[in-house]
Amino acid sequence: MDFDLFYLFRYFLCVVCTIYAAARTGQTLLRWQQWLWADGRSQALVRRYLMAQLVRVRLRRFGFDVLQIIVLLAVFWQVILLHERI
């Protein structure tokens, strides 16, 4: 059986990063959800204000950043496809 150290490194990196990112994101979302959806007038006020702020976000202002992310994702996908061809 072939033992490839780099393959092992990639595999563990992928697993660890995915689990870490998922856990952190989940924790953050849960914390926000618990805080915002708690009973109370102030929380309801903040909740509504936050919603209003989200609706009022001007997406055009972040258009260039979003475009960069789209380009980076396209490059990312192309490099993954190249892995399959080699």
């Binding site: 780099f6 992310i69 980076l72 990312f76 490099v79 190249l82 892995h83 080699i86």
Partner: peptide
């Protein structure tokens, strides 16, 4: 958005390294 970009750039660099390997 900057953090997402940095993460993507880092991922692409690792992918390129992997491709070279």
């Amino acid at each position: 958005l900057r953090i997402i970009k940095i993460t993507l750039v880092a991922s692409i660099l690792v992918l390129l390294l992997s491709l070279g390997y």
